[in-house]
């Protein structure tokens, strides 16, 4: 009987090439970088502070990330179309103020929420209309909307924050405790929203059209994609997400404050870009944004626990943004 001797060199080579192929596909995968960065942060902070991985603190980070996560999802859709939304915080704050005012004034809370969400959708759709039909740059349109809506929020609220009683409007802040970690209904809400949009972007015609419009609107148009409708639809859907974001916000802190969310537009852009979505449109995944939002949340929380001044936190976050976009630019130039 002929015995074929094992060839360790051949086997090793096969292993090596399989490993190389695996590594290559990993490196090619857009979510690996953000996921590794998040993991690294978690490891570093858990060494830097005993309190970081406690149940209370994990709950806190998750709760703090909810609103940002929801808004960053809308921001992702808009950035995918090669746009940007500076107004999302202003829209969300105005929605919370409207809902709170109506509810305190005696309107049923369900109706108050419905009207607030409708307001968010209307405001964002108007932005989309100006971008698609009037062909104004998204930066300018949403900067204008930010300015106007912030002023409206102050007018409507009399520059005072309005506390609301526990009820339907604060529903998403309630929840259950799992092993000491408090899980509000907001968490499954956020995860469901991300799952839904991962499906829409990956598996539906509308999703493909969003990428095509962001990548090359003229090519999309001659291919038969209704570019303007797609754009307006994206802003409208983002508005819906901001409306849900307002609901999440009332659940976390049962008050509507015109001073809230001043930085959230920039934070959401940071989350989107850290999550691997190209700031230049047409490329990216919503799952990356979820990781990006967690990075932003973990970074704030961890640096605070480590006793680092908030100004230094800003410096670190700013450097991170520029570094990530540089990487994006670099990989673009290499791959095309």
């Amino acid at each position: 009987m002929l015995v074929v001797p094992a060839r360790p060199d051949v086997a090793a080579k096969a292993d090596e090439s399989r490993l190389a192929a695996w590594g290559k596909s990993l490196r090619g995968h857009p979510l690996v970088g953000p996921a590794l960065a998040l993991l690294l942060l978690i490891i570093v902070f858990s060494f830097a502070s005993d309190r970081f991985l406690t149940a209370t603190n994990v709950s806190l980070v998750l709760q703090q990330t909810l609103v940002l996560g929801m808004l960053a999802l809308g921001q992702t859709l808009i950035i995918l179309t090669a746009g940007v939304d500076l107004a999302l915080g202003a829209i969300t704050v105005l929605a919370t103020i409207l809902a709170a005012k109506l509810a305190v004034g005696g309107v049923p809370e369900e109706l108050a929420l419905l009207l607030a969400v409708t307001l968010a959708i209307t405001a964002s759709t108007l932005n989309g209309w100006l971008v698609a039909k009037v062909r104004l740059p998204p930066f300018i349109v949403t900067l204008g909307a930010f300015t106007v809506l912030t002023a409206v929020s102050y007018l409507l609220s009399g520059s005072r924050s309005q506390t609301i009683p526990k009820g339907f409007l604060t529903l998403l802040g309630q929840g259950v405790s799992i092993g000491g970690v408090f899980v509000s209904w907001g968490i499954p809400t956020l995860l469901a929203a991300y799952a839904l949009f991962a499906h829409i972007l990956g598996n539906t015609a509308w999703g493909k059209h969003i990428y095509a419009v962001g990548d090359n609107p003229d090519a999309a148009r001659v291919a038969g994609v209704r570019v303007e409708r797609t754009l307006i639809g994206v802003y409208a859907v983002a508005g819906l997400l901001y409306g849900v974001g307002a609901w999440l916000s009332l659940g976390r802190i049962p008050s509507a404050d015109p001073n809230a969310m001043a930085n959230i537009a920039l934070q959401s852009i940071t989350a989107v870009v850290l999550g691997g979505t190209s700031f230049f449109g047409g490329r990216g995944k919503v799952l990356g944004t979820l990781i990006g939002a967690l990075i932003v949340g973990v970074l704030r929380n961890g640096l605070t626990l480590a006793g680092i001044d908030s100004l230094f936190q800003d410096i670190i976050t700013g450097i991170l943004i520029v570094a990530t976009v540089s990487l994006d630019q670099y990989s673009r130039r290499r791959s095309t």
Partner: peptide, 24 residues
Amino acid sequence: GVVHQDLALSGELDLVSNLFLGRE
């Protein structure tokens, strides 16, 4: 059918998505 100068494809989508873009 037409192939326009410089307006042919959407770079981020794959071949199948490009072939069926607008008529999925």
